[in-house]
Every structure is written in structure tokens, then in C-alpha cells.
């Protein structure tokens, strides 16, 4: 009789422990799912981007969360930069009428004869990709667009991705949140 009572007690204790473990596991699993879900962010594949201009016009933010970034290891530091100067620029100077960027968001800095560095001012950049088009057409393609995650709202459905004609925007893991051009690029 005592043995039976012990067995019953043991059974209840074991059941309680098992329930607790299952409950904790369930809560943990749910939390993990949430965490994993939040780890995905939107990003542009610069090799698919066709510089259509929709990043500027279709982001829910104004100005867009898409900005031009510069892969310095790819840049030729050219005097005649296709991303900085208008094709018909009168001279290679920083005068406004010679600049391709509609918001003058690119700073041209003299390094040493004949090299110049080009620095993007993110606050001024509107993500229109005009410089990217110029750099891709005439240079090494070191200018390219990226979604900046300090600005992006990470919408459930990215309004740019919805209209991107080249399917260049997709969700990526937040620990690899940027697709920056670099050594892996191909020659153009």
C-alpha cells in the first residue's frame, strides 16, 4: 500500500517536472522564433541593381533609407570620375554645375596628384543612384546603393522591394546586413 502511494507521488512529481520542462521549452522556442524572425533585414544586391531610381521614390521614408556607399578598395581615385562629374562638365572642378549628384552629396578631396577621394555625405544622399550609374558606366563600379539599417524601418513588406524591376532587394540575416562590394567584384 505504501509502495503504491510512493509510486503515485513519484508519478505526479515526474509529470510536474516534465510539464515544466515542456512549458519552458515552448516559451524558449517561441522566443527563439521571434528572435530569428527579427534578425532578417532588407538589403540590396549591388550586382543586381540597375539604378532605376525607385529607391529614391518608393521608400516610405523621405529621404529614402537607401544611400550610396563607396567601396574604396575598388575605386580608382580618378580625376575624371564618372560618378562625380556630369558627362559634359566644363572642367574638372567642384563647381556645382559640374557635379552629377542632384544634392551635391559627394565630397571630392584631393589626395595627391592625380588622385582624388570621393566621400558620400549620407545626410544629403537621397539614394537616386545617378552617381552609381555614372560610376558603373565609366568606372570600376565602386559607388553602389545599400539600405542603411540605422534609418530603415524594416517594414514587413519593403515598398521598394515590391517595385524593384531587377529583384535586387531581399531579406538577409542581420548579422550579414550589408552586401558591400569589395574584393569579390568582377571586372567591368
Amino acid at each position: 500500500m505504501e509502495k503504491k502511494a510512493e509510486n503515485r507521488r513519484e508519478f505526479i512529481q515526474k509529470s510536474a517536472r516534465l510539464s515544466l520542462v515542456l512549458a519552458l521549452g515552448g516559451v524558449g522556442g517561441f522566443a527563439l522564433t521571434k528572435t530569428t524572425k527579427d534578425e532578417w533585414v532588407w538589403q540590396i544586391d549591388p550586382f543586381k541593381c540597375t539604378q532605376c531610381g525607385r529607391c529614391e521614390s518608393d521608400c516610405v521614408l523621405a529621404p529614402s533609407a537607401v544611400k550610396c556607399i563607396h567601396a574604396y578598395d575598388l575605386c580608382g581615385y580618378c580625376d575624371l570620375c564618372g560618378g562625380y562629374f556630369k558627362p559634359d562638365a566644363n572642367e574638372l572642378s567642384t563647381a556645382g554645375e559640374n557635379q552629377l549628384c542632384p544634392t551635391a552629396a559627394i565630397e571630392r578631396k584631393f589626395i595627391e596628384e592625380p588622385y582624388f577621394e570621393y566621400i558620400i555625405n549620407e545626410d544629403l544622399c537621397i539614394g537616386c543612384a545617378k552617381c552609381v550609374e555614372g560610376c558603373t558606366s565609366f568606372g570600376n563600379g565602386s559607388f553602389h546603393l545599400q539600405i542603411m539599417h540605422n534609418i530603415c524601418l524594416n517594414c514587413n513588406e519593403c515598398s521598394i522591394a515590391r517595385v524593384c524591376p531587377s529583384d535586387a532587394i531581399s531579406r538577409v540575416k542581420s548579422n550579414e546586413a550589408y552586401k558591400v562590394k569589395g574584393d569579390f567584384t568582377t571586372n567591368t
Binding site: 539604378q51 532605376c52 531610381g53 525607385r54 529614391e56 518608393d58 558627362p87 552629377l100 542632384p102 537616386c128 543612384a129 545617378k130 550609374e133 555614372g134 558606366s137 515590391r162 517595385v163 524593384c164 524591376p165
Partner: peptide
């Protein structure tokens, strides 16, 4: 509609046609 195949004129297009 602004779906991918119905884009209007891109005001920031770098037009090189004349060259």
C-alpha cells in the same frame, strides 16, 4: 500602378544617348 514593369520616367536617369 507602380508595379515593376510599369515604371514612369526616372527623373534621375543618366542619359547618355546623345553620346
Amino acid at each position: 500602378s507602380t508595379r515593376p514593369d510599369k515604371q514612369g520616367e526616372n527623373p534621375f536617369d543618366l542619359n547618355l544617348d546623345e553620346y
